[in-house]
Design a protein around this nucleic acid. Structure first.
Lengths: 209, 209, 209, 209
DNA sequence: CATGAATGAGACTTCATTCAT
DNA sequence: CATGAATGAAGTCTCATTCAT
């Protein structure tokens, strides 16, 4: 029951670490960095708070570890989803749908991601530890927009950063709603509406964008 | 009223309270509820932390007071902006532009608002205190969508909640980017792109949504 | 008795601070920096550990505050004691006797001082905070030796640093014994022997040094 | 013994224990008992902290083991050094010179010894474990003084404990300076000055003590 | 109306120690 | 003989809150 002192009968280090990362992601997503205490995570995992320090050096490093793992997973998925399409808005919709799937898989994935920007603003010390994967979000969206300009789909004088900003904002905005509602269906429904908006079928009498 | 004899050297009560609310909003917007300490706010105002308790009962009540005041101001503005237009997407764009203006006026306004959903999820005890203005956001967007259905602009079988979700998500998503960037210009640029998206002029060969 | 929350009936800030410094000096002298806990000091004073942070920024800063106050007091006394004599060994003996008096006054004074060198070696972060009074010990002894060379009492080619080292070592060595024994009498007795050693009356048949 | 078949790859038990004791002495000398962690020692030796418990029962027992071994070595040396001389101050000087040699051999030897008194005061639980060698210091110095009284070198009414205190204080005082400075030369220089002080050649016009 | 001394709960973190392997 | 996962106690420090003044 964990009340004994020495090494527990069956401790698989790698598995415990994964459990810590999962629990941490869920807590960080729900309560944020500050309000997530080591004890909360430890209780979820079934260990004591000090044991976390066998796996990471600090709470900030734990956050960074979750960040790196999650960002890598998510943007790798996004890149695959985008690869199946050519047109900008189609690619974007495909990415949004993939995000829905990830959310259904583990709601803490988008929940964690959409909060990253705020957390780093509030706790700038996190930035240094997150270095390995930082910029992945920005480069993904600017890549999407850059391709569209190269394709001739967007005019050459388009404000590319603004387009990337808007797409990123829509994605995190929708993900946030889904996360707040804790409801995958609602996520899908909002993406469906987005699709209609893009194809011109939302508003009566509209035409494809 | 000016009728009191020997007006106090500097501070009358009402003004101090306003200064506290302003400082609190800015801090809550930047650092979040948890990381904002009473001392931080008090230092901004030029008083001591204990003095805050003359105006509010607790830190949570301070948050709620800021919330009520800000939400009221913002959605009153939004209602006015929406009143000038008839079509759904035009009304929404007008609201977004009004949001830009508010951001230029005081960046902590949208900064505070976009964080509300997260804060309440993280600190559910806030909810009770925020009652007076809760639901204002939801009812504003569902009102917008309901009007469009009534107008015949949206089909009667439209998933109204999903449309409201999407519009709300876009607004908070964009506002968040602007807040993170600390840059009003970028806000306006993203809204311009949104406008182009709606009018079909973003993508080459596109038509109005 | 301290169980209430708010401000205690009669809290004299300056007096509380002095009580903290006294208690801290005694604990630092007896247990050292590391083993002295804030709780130990707080219990001595009759406050809670957190209250210490109203007066100093950290435990290290508390150590430094004790250091600066104590060093100043001690070396000011030593300078006075030395001023009454001309010959090196007489001056040194006078200083040693003054040290005995300080020890009788408050045994934690020499107890704290003799441990300073070790503590700073073990916790180098203390050094920065101790800056205002650092070097006072070294300059006092090198001053004593320098005067003796100037007087012609010591040969010009004397290794001055070695003489200063030896005198300093004797002083801290004797103080340490006295502190360990917790016995003022023993301190005085050892200094008496030192005096005899200097005047040649210790060893049968000896002559003045 | 080399007779065991297939000698273990690298470490035989006795050698590992010696390495632990050496590493522990160095760390205790430099950082003190409290600040020396088992991990620090283990890292020096190239083992894990838990392995230490195969050789000693606790950190305190490790300290005591270092103490007993070191004290025995040092005072055995001192007894030999004293045996070569007859007069008190000559014997004492010889002991001081032997201490210099030990310091040159391994600076942690005097470094550890001079801190013993403080550590035992700070952590009285150590005392019980140190029993086997406790009193060795005191008996050595009182032996030295007792001999001098027996010789007629010191008057019969001399305060013997005070003389022993003074000599012990000088020795630990000088050793501490050397340890703090990390400089063997400085140790020797201070002892040379002490010699001059004893022989009356330090101060111009002085005569032998 | 405001100060500021103080509390007490709780945060992160360290570390000696234990014990299954 | 040794590892390393884990515990639990303790330590420093922060902060919302209270209350005499």
């Amino acid at each position: 029951m964990g009340t004994t002192r020495g090494r527990p009968p069956s401790a698989d280090s790698a598995e415990t670490e994964q459990r810590i990362l999962r629990a941490a992601r869920a807590r960080f997503a729900r309560h944020g960095f500050r309000a997530t205490t080591n004890r909360l995570i430890a209780d979820d995992v079934g260990i004591t708070p000090g044991a976390i320090y066998h796996y990471v050096d600090s709470k900030a490093a734990l956050y960074a570890a979750v960040y790196c793992e999650t960002i890598d997973q998510v943007y790798t998925e996004f890149e695959r989803a985008a690869a199946d399409h050519a047109a900008l808005l189609e690619r974007f919709t495909a990415v949004m749908r993939r995000a829905c799937e990830l959310q259904a898989l583990d709601p803490s994935i988008p929940g964690f991601i959409v909060a990253v920007a705020q957390e780093t603003q509030r706790h700038p010390d996190l930035l240094a530890l997150m270095a390995p994967q930082r910029g992945r979000h920005a480069s993904f969206f600017s890549g999407l927009v850059g391709d569209a300009v190269a394709n001739g789909e967007l005019a050459p004088d388009t404000d590319q950063r603004a387009v990337a900003d808007l797409l990123g904002a829509i994605m995190t905005g929708v993900a946030r709603i889904a996360h707040a509602a804790g409801d995958s269906e609602r996520y899908v429904a909002a993406v469906d509406v987005l699709d209609q908006l893009f194809t011109g079928s939302l508003v009566v009498g509209g035409s494809p964008a």
